[in-house]
Write a protein that binds this DNA or RNA. Sequence first.
DNA 1: GAACTAAACATACGGTCGTACGTATTTATT
DNA 2: AATAAATACGTACGACCGTATGTTTAGTTC
Lengths: 198, 198
Amino acid sequence: MSEGEQDGRLLRGARSRQTVVRHAVDVASADGLDGLSFGRLATDLGISKAGIQTLFGTKENLQLAVIEGARELFAEAVLRPAADQPPGIARLTALIERWLDYAGKPLFPGGCFWAANLPVFDSKPGPVRDLLARQQQAWRDLLAGELRHIAEIDAESTAFQIDAVLTAANIALRLGDHAAADTARRTVERLLPERTAG
Amino acid sequence: MSEGEQDGRLLRGARSRQTVVRHAVDVASADGLDGLSFGRLATDLGISKAGIQTLFGTKENLQLAVIEGARELFAEAVLRPAADQPPGIARLTALIERWLDYAGKPLFPGGCFWAANLPVFDSKPGPVRDLLARQQQAWRDLLAGELRHIAEIDAESTAFQIDAVLTAANIALRLGDHAAADTARRTVERLLPERTAG
DNA sequence: GAACTAAACATACGGTCGTACGTATTTATT
DNA sequence: AATAAATACGTACGACCGTATGTTTAGTTC
């Protein structure tokens, strides 16, 4: 009758990992990947510290699992909805709108997961930093891919710029600037060529 | 004959604070303001943990002192050299060049101090977050002030954009993208009106 | 249902953290 | 020289950290 139940069955294996990771992502987006600890997660979830340690082994493994988990949530909230749109400016716009939603009414309580954690780990070589950097690059590549469907644009450099503006908007939002999303929207619009009719 | 000496005299008062803060800024730029601890600073500097505690009282006070110290170093490295230039585009360019230097060959071993710490504290209300946010705003206001000398430009929004690009360049630099400074330079140039002759 | 594996737990260890308190030492003031 | 104030230090405390080891429980396989 402990808390570590789900659907009346004790959490076991993959299902336990998922439960822990899901909560750990929230913790890490607010307090950073460093703010994670077996003890805290155990207390929050009402299960034993040693049980979590059994599932993940080391703290670094936990962090890596959490990063993967965050990416899945991000893909579900931002990438998948935009995949419906046709390639090019439509899909790009959808991605950006979804991203601003994602940063605004936080899927993650601490705002963008990568904006929160990359600056902390960018000076700490290791698997955590590498994984975060790879995911960030994948996101920028995705933006660049859509931009290549638009003529008269330097895809790489525009992708860099869009990502920069979105990240800055994320921080501004978290600091209480409610207009930041609109600012970002207008800024991005100006980066794209004059809108064609329709 | 302990390590806590300077010019042969024991460190006392303000001089001690300055010594500790100077080192703590380096630590905090690499490991974050959370990575600071009395014990670690004491070990690094070869003085006693309790001595540092006497100087700062609480950890939060230490963090606030470190933030102020970082701002002084930033002002010395970026703001003061650019102050020679005439207001407007010349001074703006000087600020940006100095900033890229500051982010590149690190005055702080962890790159831009605010880029590293703002994302961590933007979700944690308190004096530390407030001070960091105020300083960030002051920097953006400074950029906007210079931009107002340039016609046909939305000063606020361009300042937002320049800051966003510089911050993104800082992270890219730390992740090994050696071309990031040039990318940022070119991006900023495109934000300003066609260069007048000379 | 017996044997085996995987999962969850209990407990323990050394380490560091932040803070508190008392003591010695240095500087400043009288 | 005596006194007061500011500094620096030694030590101690409870709390949490990450990890390791052994044990119990829950599923699985034969």
